[in-house]
Amino acid sequence: MISERSGRATVQLRRLSDGTVSPLPQLGRHQPHSSPSLSWNARYLAVITQRGGRRLAVVADRLNGRMHPLPLPGGRAPIRLSLAPDAQQLALQVTDQGQWRVELLDLSSMLEPDRPPGQALSTPAVGADP
């Protein structure tokens, strides 16, 4: 969720089981933040940031600390976003010729899937019969 920190809209990740706030060192600046969206296990957090006076969608990978900026063609600015639960797609609301549009981006070449808890993997176990 977004909360005010030192007067700046900043994304905050709170663990629902115990209420603790998880650190997001990759997202400590580039405020204001808006439109946060999480993958299944909260490995990935997508959010709109502000850099150099322009809005930029980014995906933070909490497992390895990497940030993935997602610049839009034509320098368009994102307004809202939604990350697919497995983080393989992102939907972005943008403005195009005065109208709102929703555009889909395929992230499968950038991000490993964040699979739902308990989902069996298709890779056979070592030593398993073919």
Partner: peptide, 18 residues
């Protein structure tokens, strides 16, 4: 997504749903 609507906003993605 551009067809048949003049404007679209507030996206929400499921596994295979928008």
């Amino acid at each position: 997504l551009r067809q048949s609507v003049s404007s679209r906003r507030d996206p929400s993605l499921g596994s295979r749903w928008l």
